[in-house]
Write a protein that binds this DNA or RNA. Structure first.
Lengths: 205, 205
DNA sequence: TCTCCGTTGCACACCAGTGTGCAATCTACT
DNA sequence: AGTAGATTGCACACTGGTGTGCAACGGAGA
């Protein structure tokens, strides 16, 4: 009884439990990424676990998706706030943002497809803060005449990172090739001249 | 028996039948556009018809979606071949293409969502010719140094008209505002300078 | 008037996924 | 050894969509 606390990881029990829980979440991203309509059974099998066990960790399918979304929001806001805090030019900040966001966006690309139909509302709600931060960055770029103004900051930011997700969803998406392509393409559509865009990604490979 | 032919519209019978058939197709685009997972029942109700009747025209859900896709392919290839035949600069051709494609893309935007999951393969196969024509146009632009080359013509064309569909799918999509936004944005991401892009859409409102 | 034939309304079987219940099993901790 | 707890394997009920069968209705055409 050297341990009067309640949750000092309790050594192994809860740790292995958390491992399976995390494994389910990780594998759910992959499975749902390939087929957003995959069932709990598919996810369970892919995680090397029985369907019943998944329900032990997540009472319903919605809980699983929500947890996934919360995870994504946490990671993305972390990157975004950090980049947003820097005093670099908006286009440079955007380039750095995409470069660092890329692995995250690629992992959670399924949320794009999941946004419509059934869980769309829940996901949309959770993604709200991310959308705001994104719009702030774009607005800063527009105010300093770095970004084009043919669209409002709200719409433009949505479309711009929609493209990032679209490329992340594309066939040849992993590797740094996708990151470069996504950064350049999004910069271009934000109105940054091609030479400048290429120079920016050169800085941040 | 003044009529020895086989299909002189047979006056009314088959005509009213074709009307309901077309109405089902039209309404299916709307319903599926709002919710790609809508069932045959929803489509039937929206068309003012019983579910059983829909199955009378389309033996299975796949048949309905396939017919819808074939329709889209027909309309899109018509526009694309016409634009592709012109000897204008590639960026001007693209601008005209988007302007004329816009209503079509907006109507069939649901196919974007339907491309993944269940019918994805069938749709993808039917859309093949469109993809080729699109890639040809982009490649022409790249060869004449009008479009950027940070991505291959195949990928770039996909991403570019993916954006068009994304904007068509956006909330404020109908009206000419969406068409302008889609044209400018796609031109920008193709590497066309902002001033040139705006001039191009000015020519074709 | 009588006959097609599209349409309707209802029936059914089928399937796939969801979520729950419960006894059995295995394992880490005491 | 004993126990708590996660996991398993199987059961079940429920839902919702699909596709089919069939008798009945109703209007246009012979």
């Amino acid at each position: 009884m050297c341990n009067n606390g309640v949750v000092p990881t309790e050594s192994s029990r809860v740790r292995s439990m958390n491992e399976t829980r995390d494994r389910i979440l990780d594998v759910a991203l992959d499975v749902l990424g390939e087929n957003p309509d995959a069932g709990m059974g598919d996810i369970a099998s892919a995680a090397g676990v029985v369907r019943r066990t998944v329900y032990g960790h997540f009472p319903s399918r919605l809980d699983l998706v929500r947890t996934l979304t919360e995870r994504a929001v946490t990671e993305m806001t972390a990157v975004l706030t950090e980049v947003n805090a820097s005093d670099a030019e908006a286009d440079a900040a955007w380039a750095e943002f995409i470069a660092r966001l890329w692995p995250v966006a690629h992992r959670y690309r399924v949320l794009l497809a999941l946004r419509r139909g059934e869980y769309g509302e829940a996901i949309h709600g959770l993604l709200g803060p991310v959308d705001e931060l994104l719009a702030d960055l774009v607005k800063r770029g527009q105010d300093t005449d770095v970004f084009a103004q043919h669209l409002s900051a709200g719409i433009l930011s949505q479309v711009a990172y929609g493209v990032v997700f679209a490329i992340a969803d594309s066939d040849l998406s992993n590797g740094t090739l996708g990151a470069r392509a996504a950064t350049i393409t999004s910069l271009l559509m934000l109105g940054v001249p091609e030479t400048r865009a290429i120079a920016l990604v050169g800085d941040q490979p």
